[in-house]
Structures are given as structure tokens and as C-alpha cells.
Nucleic acid binder design. Structure first.
Length: 207
DNA sequence: TGCCAGGCCCTCTTTAGGGCCTT
């Protein structure tokens, strides 16, 4: 498939609409199932980190004070990602923060997100949990580092994403999985994946 | 003062409720 960018944010909470800000961003570029480039940075948005968040992520106020400004980091990472299609685990979360942080620098996201959580629910419905760490364990994927740090989570989401594409290719004999197809599959009713893929094939071939 | 996310997905559903997932 085309090059995609898998991203992961660490933040001060769950909702930019409630004033939460990003504290760390990572993006990895995937080409032919391999990570070919990486970006990672802490980012200083001038906000305090709640203690339970520091416990969760290991990211402290002291670390953030020394980090580059959020605006500079977002300019760098959005340049790094360009218009490659995006992927995240629970993309509804990361897309909210991506859009909110881009808005602070007057940029607008041009591309769509695919979601490895929605895809996992469809392709691995039997998994005991669809949390990123649990899926990595379930699929026997390598642990990339400390969970709840952006680069480790982005690397693990990337390897999960590669696994999902492989599964899709095998199970449904889709030889060229596109980001556009994934965006359709992740919205399709679980019992209609086959129909969704057939319809996509027909649209692609112009019938 | 009191409140505080929101989208997905299942089910004892659809005139709704609650768990999962992200930090």
C-alpha cells in the first residue's frame, strides 16, 4: 500500500475541548510494512500536567519546561507527515488532538485517519481486549518500549497496523490494501466486511 | 454552583444504557 504515517499523542487529558493539550507526539512512516522514518518530540504548550497523567506517562512538568514550544513541534511534525494518510490507535482521540494542535498554528489536516482499534474489532473480534498493549500481546508483536510514551506506542500501533493489513490480505484475498479501503472497512458493520470489500473492488474497477 | 469527552458497539435496543478505548 501507499506510505502511511502512524501517530500517537501523549496529552494532559482526554479532551482538547476541555482545555487539554498535547505533551508529546510521535509519527512513524510505514512503507511496504516497514518503518522507514520516525519523528518524536516532547512539546511545551504551557500547561501543567496532572499528577495522575505524570504517573501514567512518566512525562513531568520539568520535562515539558525544557521541551520546544508546541507550535514549533506541530509545524515540524505536520511537515514530516505531509499529506500521507494517517493511522492511529483509537483515531477519534488522536484526530481530535491533531486537529486542535494544528488549529493553534492555523493549519488544517488534509488527509483521513484510519483507526487500528476499529480495524482490530473487525478483524480480531476474539481478542480479549482491544487496548493497544493487549493487542500487541495477543498478536505476538514486539514491545517497542515503555507504554504510554508516544514513540513506543506509535511503533506498536504501526506493527499492529501491518498485522491487520496482512490479516485482511489473507482472509479476504485483498492483494492491494489501500488506506481508502481501510477507512471504509473500519466503518462497515462487522458482518458485512465481505460486501464492503466487494463493493470497493467494483468501484475501483469502475463497475 | 456544579458540571466536566465522545465515538463505537453490544444488548435484556431503537422512547436507552453502559462498557470499551484513548490520556
Amino acid at each position: 500500500m501507499e506510505i502511511v504515517a502512524v501517530i500517537d499523542f501523549e496529552t494532559t487529558g482526554l479532551s482538547p475541548a476541555q482545555g487539554d493539550r498535547a505533551t508529546e507526539i510521535a509519527a512513524v512512516l510505514l512503507e511496504n510494512g516497514k518503518v522507514v522514518d520516525r519523528y518524536q518530540s516532547l512539546m511545551n504548550a504551557g500547561v501543567r500536567i496532572p499528577s495522575y497523567i505524570e504517573t501514567l506517562t512518566g512525562i513531568s512538568d520539568a520535562m515539558i519546561r525544557k521541551a520546544p514550544k508546541a507550535a514549533a513541534v506541530m509545524q515540524e511534525v505536520s511537515d514530516f507527515v505531509g499529506d500521507y494518510p494517517l493511522v492511529a490507535h483509537n483515531a477519534s482521540f488522536d484526530s481530535k488532538f491533531w486537529d486542535a494542535e494544528l488549529a493553534h498554528i492555523d493549519r488544517v489536516r488534509p488527509q483521513q485517519f484510519a483507526c487500528s482499534l476499529l480495524l482490530s474489532r473487525r478483524l480480531f473480534p476474539q481478542a480479549p481486549s482491544h487496548r493497544l498493549g493487549a493487542l500487541v500481546e495477543y498478536a505476538n508483536l514486539p514491545v517497542a518500549g515503555r507504554a504510554h510514551r508516544a514513540l513506543a506506542d506509535a511503533e506498536m500501533a504501526a506493527s499492529l497496523f501491518v498485522k491487520l493489513i496482512g490479516e485482511l490480505g489473507q482472509r479476504y484475498e485483498v492483494h492491494e490494501v489501500s488506506h481508502a479501503l481501510l477507512c471504509k472497512i473500519q466503518r462497515a458493520p462487522k458482518h458485512q466486511l465481505n460486501q464492503c470489500i466487494q463493493r470497493h473492488r467494483q468501484e475501483e474497477s469502475g463497475h
